[in-house]
Nucleic acid binder design. Structure first.
Lengths: 369, 369
DNA sequence: TCCGCTGCTGAATCTGATA
DNA sequence: TTATCAGATTCAGCAGCGG
């Protein structure tokens, strides 16, 4: 594909609309390499037989819709591989996919993902804080669903906002198990008759975490099983573009009304904690040029090693000369070393990491734009 | 099979011993329909490439054993289907199987189980209370493993001690997610050199829950990937018969010594299974994800300071960005600050501490362990 | 004996910008 | 495309030691 083709394709993308039809056919009509993230909540192939009743004999409203009926595993597999293949064609090279499912279908989906060339990054457990109990006492309470996060291929440079998710989790890195309530109450959409509009509406909180963690503002998010449009609603809130595909007219109607009512968060609120790597690079030599460190001055490490600063911003250790990183690594016998945190200078008897000086320079750069 | 055959087969069973050899060949030599429960911890096919270092530069001791190396998915699939087929032949008609794995292999195992005619009853998530973190900040902490529980076939009358598991869970129906620590400390078996005897020893608490829930005293439990014999040790404690199969002599030696030391119904060993209950930690970000607070919304303090909420659960104050605690401390010039009581939101003209929202979330989590 | 501090470790598919 | 090198990155639990 030429750059021109891709630009043409991108221009043709039906952003922020719901396409009516079968997801494989609709995806086939979209341009390759045009989507940043796909979130998919495919039919679970539940294979329910008769009714299920609660201990008080009331009937459980199960998923018995036509779209969840398949002939058998082989038919479900063909369906799965067909939509996963089209989805992969649509993804940009560094794009990624999330798929949610239960034990009825997730193993087949996961194996198909691997067979189609996707590269699994994590499986994530959505642990429901308020699941439906097991009424018969014949099994464990089915209290979770599984999500799979995969990049388009091995080695792809997928988007992962590590610091943002860490911030969401109060400073501790986000784990693969997420405790979130199921979608109930005011969030649960109702149809005209007051019945739930969709049997398996996903909670906003789930999509919020996925989109904050794995997309950037302005990214294109595709949901091939749009349902009542949680993906679109959250994408809009977060300032991402979205495309939905949905066969059932009744779901599309509910989704359109819903998304129209969503307000985008304001720009400042969408800013997210950024990684250090995104900050401007400051060469160590600048600390010397600016006179923050004197040539000839001795730097020390917490492990008791020392080295002397030279005018060109290199260090001289016992036997070694080189960058702050190289000398640190050599003195420790380590394969690598972050010299910024390893080396310290001494002022008025106090030992200070040289990284503090780098932060001063960065702060100045901020102020001067 | 006649009743006579089955009795002959049962009589020939090598109970409470470890068979040396490849599990497919060893299972093929055992009589059909003779086993009540199988617990299997097959190789995960991790496909690790280079080595991994912690931020302090120490090297992670990875699973690089020969038994975890496969040519590719197709080779792993053949292996999986071969042992699952033999395992199914050995099961009594009402027998069941548990298999444990990670995202590297569990999807292939689950699909194979279904294809071979097993009937999945639950997938169970082992949520590790103390997993290894993600050192490079490139993915989510891999904090769980998945177990699949399946009966030999659809409609089988498998053993499930509903009341026993409910009692283990302090009177509440057992859920499909189990919080248990990984195997460390005194429980972790060491070799003569003081190194861990097996790279992936499973905790007693995990097997305890499986065997209490899915076997009866006197049942025969088979583990085709016996390793250092946690399955055998727990079976002996609980008065079940066991059969192990293990290729590696070093593992068999450790397992034999270990199981010889186990006393039936060792009370102290059973203590391990009681989960510790602490007040669950609720990250501030969850209030945002759940829509209790809106990104862009302003929080205020009793001292007249204010800050705005961002989508990743951080706050922006006058000059500071960070957690609710960090921003509160900075604005007050204090070394620390409890953001939960310091910050308030405004609804209908009323100022409410954000801690009220945390209490709401905790109330939802109550009773769901 | 208790407390705090340091150090070590666990089934892990673990970098990215620039030349 | 490949080589080079700067430099970013961790949580819970247990053992051992010193005061």
């Amino acid at each position: 594909m030429t750059k021109m083709d891709r630009m043409k394709g991108a221009a043709a993308l039906p952003l922020n609309t719901i396409l009516a039809g079968d997801c494989v056919a609709e995806m086939a009509a979209l341009p390759a390499g045009s989507v940043d993230l796909i979130f998919a909540d495919p039919p679970y192939n539940l294979q329910l037989k008769g009714d299920l009743r609660r201990p008080d004999n009331s009937r459980v409203d199960a998923v018995d819709d036509a779209w969840d009926r398949f002939e058998g595993f082989s038919s479900y597999d063909s369906f799965t591989r067909a939509w996963l293949r089209e989805a992969r064609r649509l993804l940009k090279p560094d794009g990624a996919i999330w798929v949610i499912g239960s034990y009825h279908n997730i193993f087949r989906v996961g194996a198909a993902l691997q067979d189609e060339g996707y590269w699994i990054l994590n499986d994530v457990v959505w642990r429901k804080s308020n699941p439906m109990p097991n009424f018969r006492g014949k099994r464990l309470t089915n209290a979770h669903e599984t999500l799979i996060w995969a990049s388009r291929s091995e080695g792809a440079r997928y988007t992962f906002n590590y610091e943002a998710l860490k911030a969401l989790n109060e400073g501790i890195q986000m784990r693969s198990d997420w405790v979130l309530p199921i979608c109930t109450g005011g969030e649960r959409l109702k149809d005209a008759a007051g019945e739930k509009a969709h049997p398996t509406q996903k909670p906003i909180s789930l999509l919020h975490r996925v989109l904050v963690g794995c997309t950037k503002p302005g990214d294109v998010v595709l949901d091939p099983f749009f349902g009542t449009g949680t993906t679109g609603a959250v994408a809009k809130m977060l300032g991402r573009d979205w495309i939905g595909i949905e066969r059932e007219e009744s779901y599309r109607t509910v989704a359109e009304t819903r998304i129209a009512q969503v307000r985008k968060f304001d720009k400042a609120a969408l800013e997210v904690t950024r990684p250090k790597r995104a900050e401007p690079r400051v060469p160590f030599g600048q600390l010397v040029e600016r006179g923050m460190l004197r040539p000839g001055e001795t730097l020390v490490s917490a492990t008791g090693k020392s080295a002397r600063v030279r005018a060109d911003g290199t260090l001289v250790g016992l036997d070694v000369t080189g960058s702050i990183h190289q000398v640190g690594a050599a003195l420790e016998g380590a394969p690598s070393c972050n010299g910024w945190t390893y080396w310290h200078f001494v002022r008025d008897g106090v030992t200070v990491p040289i990284d503090v000086l780098r932060q001063q320079i960065r702060a100045e750069m901020q102020g001067s734009g």
